[in-house]
Write a protein that binds this DNA or RNA. Structure first.
Lengths: 236, 236
DNA sequence: AAGTGGTCTAGACCACTTG
DNA sequence: AAGTGGTCTAGACCACTTG
């Protein structure tokens, strides 16, 4: 009773090429067999041979150019990446989300906020500070600046059921964001709000997120999390 | 003088499908036209229609199953990712890498290191502490545990030209790693080594990296960086 | 002029799920 | 039984780089 597994031919060819590349047998710059070569040596049609090469190209192992040939790429050092977990989203999903609005005002941008939001000084903004809780346990502080012309109804929302970020995301649709992460020591005020007592607990992760719409910044959020609670793990 | 740009037909079809999906016209779960449908409506061969669908499938927009059809996937919330920049690699590349070996010993694992390296208590390890400098400026501290049976020559290397991590990477080939990031306050000793004087400078980013080979941990590295210097940016 | 990869065709057989 | 996606064929034309 042998289990006969049908292996597609393009996979055989792909494996053949991948082995030569990964073992270092064909170092970077080596010209690999052409579609026609492979078609002949493996007795397949050109389209099948092509598929093996095309998939390796898509995987970033090859550099292909018409008229010239296919060449082994030099491995691009992939930098490890870490996933940013949105604690608030998790709390919302678990029904444990609570939000306390510490402040919420319409202001004019000063020089500092103007430069970080890439707008002129004196433009209208909303500035708010939120404390998020896991049920009754404080777990994140957020300073939020919102472009009031792009999200005019921001201050009229009720943030007991939805988070400010998810409201902005909903208004703007799915826009691009950039993130900046570093480590800070919580200020006395922040320590008080977050109920951080111990010496070591002062170490916090600060994450700045800016949401872009077209060339403009919709909002700038700075979240502060206790470093012990908020650990970030890689998935590659 | 019109510039006539030849647009591949599969791209036209792909765009057509993508538009319907992205505008929400075809919400998640919607069945999209089959290969045969598309081939007929766009007057192309089935292989060309297929390519449009296959590429969208690869992009994660579709769920395809033989006999059943192709369906719009519900968008998978892509968590933002942050790139971990290896400061040491950058220093090496710039010729500014300096390394001071603060300690290097052969030890037996105690209960704590045993559990974090997932080995038994009492196994042979190398334990070392390095201080890395940008020319003469301290910029990173590293506590490193190395499985001595997997990297036996670790202590015999000269780390003035290559970094310990790059040596291990070279020995093990390209293995999988996992990372864990959080925020800590530098201990008095660490502050001294890193020459951190100011109050705010105590906030550091701590990054644990474990290198896996097969099911075993080759090394466990804990690096400590001043939070001000070491900012992490998203590229998406 | 010969070879390369990029696109495309009109067929084919297959295992599979659907009505 | 009719339709689906997955694989594959043996051709074709094209713009391009190479000797």
């Amino acid at each position: 009773m042998e289990s006969i597994v049908k292996v597609p031919r393009f996979l055989v060819i792909k494996q053949y090429l991948e082995n030569h590349i990964n073992t270092g047998n064909w170092p970077a710059g080596t010209r690999v067999p052409s579609e026609n070569d492979l078609a002949e040596t493996f007795s397949v049609s050109r389209m099948t041979a092509r598929r093996a090469l095309a998939e390796l190209d898509r995987q970033g192992l090859l550099l292909r150019s018409p008229g010239s040939g296919s060449f082994v790429k030099k491995i691009d050092k992939k930098r490890p990446k870490i996933e940013l977990v949105d604690v608030i989203e998790d709390l919302l999903a678990a029904g444990r989300y609570r939000c306390r609005v510490l402040s919420m005002d319409a202001i004019q941008s000063d020089s500092e906020t103007a430069s970080s939001m890439e707008i002129d000084i004196g433009e209208n903004l909303f500035k708010a500070t939120f404390l998020y809780l896991d049920l009754d346990k404080p777990c994140q502080l957020e300073h939020l600046y919102v472009n009031s012309s792009l999200v005019p109804a921001f201050m009229k929302q009720n943030y007991e059921k939805i988070s400010p970020s998810s409201y902005i995301d909903w208004i703007t649709g799915d826009c691009e964001s950039d993130y900046l992460l570093n480590s800070v020591i919580a200020s006395p005020g922040e320590r008080r709000e977050l109920a951080l007592t111990g010496e070591d607990e002062q170490a916090c992760i600060k994450l700045r997120r800016r949401i872009w719409m077209g060339g403009n910044i919709v909002s700038l959020s700075v979240t502060i999390n206790p470093g012990q609670l908020y650990q970030l793990q890689s998935v590659i």
